[in-house]
Computed example of a mutant assay.
Amino acid sequence: MGSHSDFDYYLAYGNRDSVTIQPQPGILLIGGAEGDKSGEHEATQWFLERAKGGKYLVLRVGRIKKQADWIAQHYRDWIHSAAELSINSREAANNRKVVDYIREADALFIAGGDQTAYQEYWEGTATEDALNYLINEKKIPIAGTSAGMAIMGDYYYAPHHQGVLSSEILDDPFHYNTEHIHRSKFLEVPYLGRVITDTHLDRLNQKNPETRYGRLLGLLARLIYEDNNQLDHYAIGLEEGAFVAIDEKGIATVFGNGTNIGQDAYFLQTNGALPEQMEPGWPLIWDHNGQAVKVYRIPGTPEGSGYFDLNDWSTAKGGQWKYWYTVGGKSGLRKTSL
């Protein structure tokens, strides 16, 4: 364990010796509840195969946890090393040693946690530059779960309060909890330009009294508004047991548990019409004769299923096209098949 100021580095397995490999790019989006999920093993193998026996790095805010240990325990034959790096201030994010740890990576996993902290500590720093070097110059595979997935889109939602509920954003798309929808050059991830992502779509518990499907629709409406009503925007939402693997050609496949619960991925795009009502204090109306937003749903399976082309957002198989729309707020939310 190495600790300095506001960062910690933990080498769970292997060493930092140089390795000569050529990583293969790829993107793994994770719905937020990994940990012995059916389909996780296959998705992890898909990801680690692209590391080509190189150095695996977990990036997070807060204290070091168990993710690198888990990789070292179950997949050490696939990697040269497994380490975790926690970066907890902007000063640490500009530290030369931190930058060196990042640039060494041949596979990067951005952990869950608080995307607001990721934004506040890392955006606009040498850490951001190092991450984009990995993604777009070294071209290594990158994965993100929960908060880690949230910051991988061109747009991202980083609430400074409790995250907005589906009812709040659909009943008022300018609800105060929507003020932290960002577009920046934080992470420049291929195929996720003009995309906002969301995770845990199906989570219901004491802290999450509503699912997030309606929230995803509301976030898409809001970012279109923020970008001068330009319709060419997209959203990707995952249920907690879904793992979306995007290869270097922009083709997405979904790993999951192969059941009807908790393993679906949703790819949203507008269908040629702006919301009919988008005003502060009033419910969102985005109807367009029941065809406001086209959504392709792919259920994940342990072996990987479906095919969705993120180059054109239309070539797809193995799933089902649907329309999502609202005739007025959360109570008016509808989902119908094409």
Rank of each mutant, 00 (worst) to 15 (best):
S305T: 05
E137F: 15
I298T: 04
R60K: 12
I298W: 04
Y56V: 10
D198N: 15
D114W: 13
H200M: 08
K330D: 02
N228R: 14
V295R: 13
T44M: 15
G304N: 07
P159L: 05
L187D: 04
I196R: 08
E91F: 02
Y156M: 12
A130M: 03
L284S: 02
A83K: 01
A143F: 11
V195D: 05
L204C: 14
L238H: 00
A92K: 05
R183S: 05
Y266M: 01
G54A: 11
N88F: 05
E104H: 06
L134R: 10
S38R: 13
G319F: 09
A242F: 14
G193S: 13
L338E: 13
E303H: 12
D312M: 11
W282H: 12
E91Q: 08
F308G: 14
Q291S: 08
S5E: 15
T326N: 08
P173L: 02
G2A: 06
L85T: 00
T326P: 01
I151S: 13
S331K: 01
V19H: 02
P173W: 13
W78D: 00
A72Q: 06
R297D: 00
I140W: 10
Y13W: 14
G218A: 09
P280H: 03
D114H: 08
S81N: 01
I140Q: 07
D264H: 06
A273W: 04
I30T: 05
S89L: 09
E168Q: 12
A43F: 13
L59H: 12
L29E: 09
N289W: 12
T197K: 05
Y118P: 10
I71A: 02
D312R: 13
G290V: 04
W46V: 01
D114F: 01
L274N: 10
Y133V: 02
A82G: 07
I21W: 01
D100N: 03
V293E: 06
T336G: 13
A242G: 03
T211L: 07
D77L: 00
I140M: 08
G32K: 02
S146I: 06
H200G: 04
R194E: 12
T145L: 11
Q277R: 15
A316C: 15
T197W: 01
M152G: 09
